[in-house]
Design a protein around this nucleic acid. Sequence first.
DNA 1: AATAGCTCCAACCGCAGAGCG
DNA 2: ACGCTCTGCGGTTGGAGCTAT
Length: 223
Amino acid sequence: MDTLTLDKNIIKKGAWTKEEDEKLRAYIQRYGHWNWCLLPKFAGLSRSGKSCRLRWMNYLRPNIKHGNITKEEDEIIVRLHKQLGNKWTAIAAQLTGRSDNEVKNRWNSHLKKRVQDDETHVLENINHDETIKPDEAPSCSSGTDNSSDYHIPSDVTPQTYDYELTGDFWTDPFLLDITSAVENTTTWGLEHNFGSQSSWGDMTMSEELSWSALGSYFEYNNY
DNA sequence: AATAGCTCCAACCGCAGAGCG
DNA sequence: ACGCTCTGCGGTTGGAGCTAT
């Protein structure tokens, strides 16, 4: 017996199961993430909204990549970290399909030590070579902001986590699906005494979903 | 083969900011 | 102006898997 059947109010923690992933993916692809706090309830998940959001952003999001971080990506992370500091979201936005969490983990587990070693190495070289000239010094040895030297490779396309309207099904799930949700809701409303609050207590999950989607639709279109 | 130590990553936690009534 | 809710961000942690002894 799982925690869900024991107590629907228990917030489950720890690793996500395949079933949970499928529920979350299916729900968001159909209705979008209109409210992370309420989403787990409607999606049938015993998770916090925060946990759902994190799982979606870091793992289930369309086009998200896992592992196999390339040298080029490492270089971008190192350069941007030098410029921006621990702004993982901003750094991740420059890496197609990488989450801020993955970038952060990459830095903490690989790049941080590498950069520290490199800088130590450079400082040692400087100390051991008194004849070095300023214009020959490696640029990475400087502790100053080298933002003017910073270049993002031309083949790296900037992106954000916001679901701007691109016309693409995977990035615009909510608005594309909302039309059918509204149609369903309208039909359902006519059949169920539209506007009667007293009938809401008997709402089924799909009915609740339709109303939630409808509310988001109206809000989005400034009704 | 056993196990201690280490690495890496998924997930959690706390906080800050935005938005709203 | 204030308090509340929700979202997003960055720091931290737990544990699975790997490596060395």
